[in-house]
Write a protein that binds this DNA or RNA. Structure first.
Ligand SMILES: Nc1ccn([C@H]2C[C@H](O)[C@@H](COP(=O)(O)OP(=O)(O)OP(=O)(O)O)O2)c(=O)n1
Ligand SMILES: [Mg+2]
Ligand SMILES: [Mg+2]
Length: 959
DNA sequence: ATCCTCCCCTAC
DNA sequence: TAAGGTAGGGGAGGAT
């Protein structure tokens, strides 16, 4: 019998200290500056609407307005009005750029409302300081329709005496430094240093000749920027220079699978020495403490979603996972522009021709005609920690980690630990308490996202000097296909030398015949080294590796494999591919088998277009009421809309993700954490593309109701948009909702009177009542539109939530792909045009349809703004008049289901038998900070629990 | 069969 | 104190 994957089940609640439960009573201090909040909110809505309107206009109408801020790139610092989110959206819509993380090279204007905020970050440089302006500059420019001179809006000229920069608290050379040779005498450098001539020379020498082009000078200049930055004050005090010994190490660290492995670096070989607190330790700790203090300036006490009006912005600004998670979206632009000028290998994209491109060449023949590829995988060593060490020679040789918290009781997570610290077993994701327990002498440095961004950019600029065939993996990691560029080991060594010279951080590299092998080789090369595995050695090399060393094999799959007696790669090889596929699923089994045999056909590809845009927060989420969660969802919708605007995409499908406190779950272990939760999601597919915050919010809130999770139990919220208009596949998806098309309506829906209107009420639901207005036009080709308002309150106020607009003219659902091409003229037209880059096909618009649309619009102003039906109830919707059960009964079954599933309307149909999913099949629960342990049965069902009071103290689960 | 939704898993 | 995001791959099982 073929079985799908089986997830083992294990109950793994974390033990909770009972005494913590005593902290449960906490006072609620509800009222804030409500007036200001309201005022700001109004303003925000105004801008959001403006943004939505502009976005709805589509490419056609974005003419001169869209270009208003062309060439302007802002970075927002601190609290502003309009909010940073609104500013982001405005910039996106009007042709400007928005940087979440400050970069001197990319940001033209810093937007900031008040002086303290500006002072916290120090953007000054001796020459050419980035202007700091008030947000009114943006607003007024918009009003004026032109970019106004900044003169009247300059907040602060940022002129300060050299050497007085406040940010350098941590990096400032201390007067009693033990290693004065490197930094103590460095005056705050005001001029770019002579940019390490010896290293430049090395870089040039080892740069493949075809990398030298007319743009070479620019590239070098660009790569040098990282160095200029630190010399120039933005980074402060980084007079670090790679020393000769570093370069020598580089050669020494270069190994190969053909050499005796014993000679390789072995982190475990060195005995752990317990650190007595030496003077230099204390000095390092002092510096780190000062650095942490310096970046705490703008923070007060941490507050949850319940009591911090600025919660979301603060969260995203501080979240490391947000930083690395959004990095790819940020690098896309750079990659696109830089790859153009990057050297393109003779064989177009070298990776394509080899194993994967033409199957016929490869299949069945070991003597493949295609030359073996040379793939490099390059990854920065303990990236965040390395950056933290820049300009801090006092940290050298000491265990160092990056983390928000430095408390020995803290539940903050270690982001990156240097190799010294790893000797103590420190790992990314480990709680700081555990890290300090293992390594009491640990130095903890704060995050410096701007620097990571800058180093990352410098690294990519270097990589792109060598070849355009670069596949970004993350802010510190990429694959390159260097086939035909000469000895790949030399190429890798050269790139690493360039990187170290330019950024002061070290990188490691792996070289192999494909991405898998190259990646495995990198592990062996780290830190600050490289390693090559020729294809002839790949099989043997992999044999001894644990399965979990293979990419794609994480904790869960490793457990599954373990349970069937597979621990090492060689064990995998003893199974047939078919067996693995049966145990793990078709794709996963196949991939595992291929990887175990060292096979990997994936070409090194430039980044592909995103298929979704989303945002979520699963930390600090505590709501007292539905109003709270709705408000949060509004803000989250604004965030997603802003990201969509920045990316220039719209989408058809909206997904809401929730974390719900699991019944009986103990208090979260992590401060403000989500604790043990059920994960729920709901999605809805619209008939049109949208990127309007109002749409996302309305649909999101409707789904929130449908999921029926009491606000007090929500521990995480996410909103994502898929079926993007950049993806042709979005068109073939099932249409739902308004799809104007002439066809006879189901007879049951024929308008009963002259008006063509009919109103009715559905059965009562726990959500309140549901009113509906079937809308028919009177012409000879009648259509049927149904507008449903789902009131969340029984009082039936005219709030704007819960509107659904559906076109029943042609039935509810339609077979996918039947004749979408001409059905979906308006929105499909957009997408097709986008996809095929002006295919010169004007949207096919049936004149009859157009007329009918116009007629409808006349009756129903709501339809005028096609982008936003969810936000505006049709004026004709009267207070309910009658219940017409027969109408309800006659609704298509699929629609009833959809109403229930996505909008929470009950009692429309008898629900199908409960899904019994994979009986006995459960989820494997990770031992550490993991949330799920449900067997997969009806996890989305309403959870009947006693009402839970609002949680005011973040750490506690109320009960 | 194939599509679609709702998950889970993985990586950084 | 502390900021547990993001996107994609993929599987199960119901709907069509
Ligand atoms: N769970 C994780 C994993 C990574 N990162 C961040 C910090 C890392 O510095 C950076 C790069 O991730 P890597 O996996 O490359 O880890 P490092 O670069 O820190 O170490 P290594 O030398 O092993 O690459 O991403 C993080 O914050 N949390
Ligand atoms: Mg790394
Ligand atoms: Mg990495």
């Amino acid at each position: 019998m073929s079985r799908g994957p089986v997830y083992l089940s294990r109950h793994e609640y974390k033990k909770v200290q009972p005494e913590d439960k005593a902290k449960e009573s906490m006072h609620h201090d509800g009222s804030m500056a409500k007036y200001m909040e309201h005022k700001n909110r109004k303003l925000g809505e105004q801008f959001a609407q403006q943004a939505a309107d502009a976005a709805a206009l589509g490419p056609s109408l974005q003419g001169q307005e869209a270009k208003l801020f062309a060439g302007i790139s802002i970075h927002v610092n601190g609290f502003t009005t309009p909010s940073h989110q609104e500013l982001k959206q405005l910039m996106a819509i009007h042709g400007g750029n928005f940087e979440n993380y400050y970069s001197r090279s990319r940001v033209t204007h810093i937007v900031c409302s008040n002086l303290p905020d500006a002072k916290v970050k120090q953007y000054d440089r001796e020459r050419n300081p980035t202007p700091v302006v008030r947000p009114e500059w943006v607003v007024d420019s918009l009003k004026a329709g032109a970019v106004l001179p900044i003169h009247d809006y300059v907040l602060w000229q940022l002129r300060e005496a050299p050497g007085q920069r406040s940010i350098k608290a941590f990096a400032e050379p201390s007067p009693h430094k033990s290693a004065p040779s490197l930094t103590a005498s460095a005056p705050a450098p005001l001029e770019p240093p002579p940019s390490g001539p010896q290293l430049q020379a090395l870089s040039r020498e080892s740069t493949p000749s075809n990398a030298l082009s007319d743009s070479d000078a620019d590239e070098l200049q660009a790569a040098d920027e990282a160095r200029v930055w630190d010399a120039d004050g933005e980074w402060e005090a980084s007079d670090y220079r790679p020393r000769a010994s570093d370069q020598l190490n580089l050669a020494k660290a270069t190994g190969s699978a053909a050499e005796p492995i014993a000679a390789r670096h072995d982190p475990d070989a060195r005995p752990l020495t317990s650190h007595a607190a030496s003077a230099s330790d204390r000095e390092a700790q002092r510096i780190a403490a000062a650095a942490r203090a310096a970046c705490d300036v703008l923070k007060g006490a941490p507050r949850s979603s319940a009591d911090d009006p600025n919660f979301m912005e603060t969260f995203f600004k501080s979240s490391r996972l947000h930083f690395i998670g959004t990095w790819k979206a940020r690098i896309e632009a750079l990659h696109a522009t830089m790859a153009v000028s990057a050297p393109v290998p003779q064989q177009a994209m070298p990776s394509v021709h080899a194993e994967s491109g033409q199957r016929s060449l490869f299949m069945g023949s070991t003597a493949s005609r295609a030359a073996e590829r040379s793939i490099i995988h390059l990854d920065m060593d303990c990236f965040f920690a390395s950056v933290a060490a820049l300009g801090n020679p006092a940290f050298e040789g000491k265990p160092l980690a990056v983390c928000h918290s430095s408390s020995a009781q803290g539940t903050g997570e270690v982001s990156s630990a240097n190799y010294e610290a790893r000797k103590y077993g420190l790992k990314a994701g480990m709680f700081i308490a555990e890290a300090k327990r293992r390594c009491p002498a640990l130095i903890v440095m704060p995050y410096e996202f701007d620097k990571y961004e800058a180093v990352s950019e410098a690294v990519y600029k270097i990589l792109l000097k060598y070849t355009a065939c670069v596949q970004p993996i993350s802010c510190d990691e990429a694959f390159l296909d260097v086939t035909g560029l000469g000895d790949p080991e030399q190429v890798a060594a050269s790139m690493r030398a360039d990187i170290q010279a330019s950024t002061g951080c070290t990188a490691s590299a792996g070289i192999g015949p494909n991405m898998l092998v190259a990646r495995m080789a990198t592990k062996r090369g780290k830190p600050n080294g490289q390693f090559r595995i020729p294809s002839s050695a790949a099989g043997d090399y992999l044999n001894d590796m644990e399965v979990s060393d293979l990419p794609g094999v994480g904790w869960s799959m490793a457990r599954k494999l373990e349970s069937i007696g597979i621990a090492h790669v060689r064990d995998v090889k003893q199974r047939s591919k078919a067996v693995l596929q049966r145990e793990l699923g078709t794709k996963s089994g196949s991939m595992l088998w291929n990887f175990a045999h060292g096979r990997d056909d994936r070409p090194v590809d430039p980044p592909k277009a995103r298929k979704s845009v989303g945002a979520e927060v699963n930390w600090g989420i505590r709501f007292g009421s539905d109003a709270d969660s709705d408000k949060f969802l509004d803000e989250l919708a604004g965030e997603v809309a802003a990201r969509m605007a920045a990316a220039g995409v719209r989408g058809r499908s909206i997904t809401l993700k929730l974390k719900r406190r699991k019944a009986g779950a103990p208090e979260p272990i992590k401060f403000m954490g989500h604790g043990v939760c059920d994960n729920l999601s709901r999605s809805v597919t619209l008939s049109r593309f949208t990127s309007a915050a109002a749409d996302l919010a309305a649909e999101g809130k409707a789904m929130l109701r449908a999921l029926r999770v009491p606000a007090q139990q929500i521990r995480g919220v996410g909103l994502a948009v898929t079926k993007l208009d950049t993806d042709a596949a979005s068109l073939s998806a099932k249409p739902a909702g308004p799809v104007p098309k002439a066809a006879p309506p189901p007879s049951a829906y024929t308008p009963a009177d002259d008006r063509g209107w009919q109103e009715f009420v559905t059965a009562a639901s726990p959500l309140g009542k549901t009113t509906g207005s079937p809308v028919g036009s009177d012409d000879e080709a009648p259509s049927l539109h149904l507008d449903l308002r789902i009131d969340s309150d029984a009082a039936g106020e005219d709030d704007d939530d819960g509107w659904m607009h559906a076109d029943l003219t042609d039935g509810w659902h339609r077979q996918a792909g039947d004749d979408l091409g001409d059905q979906d003229s308006d929105q499909a037209g957009d997408a097709v045009d986008k996809a095929s880059e002006e295919s010169s096909q004007p949207p096919v618009l049936d004149p009859e349809e157009q007329a009918r649309l116009a007629a409808l619009k006349g009756k129903q102003p709501m339809l005028e703004d096609a982008s936003d039906p969810a936000a505006q109830p049709p004026p004709q919707a009267q207070p309910l008049t009658s219940v017409d059960a027969s109408v309800l009964d006659a609704l298509p079954l699929a629609m009833k289901r959809e109403l229930e599933r996505a909008y929470g309307v009950q009692d429309l149909h008898s629900p199908p038998a409960k899904r019994k999913r994979g009986g006995g099949r459960g989820t494997l629960s990770r031992p550490h900070k993991q949330t799920t342990l449900s067997s997969r049965t009806t996890s989305a069902a309403p959870q009947q629990l006693p009402a839970v009071p609002a949680l005011q103290q973040p750490r506690m689960h109320a009960r």
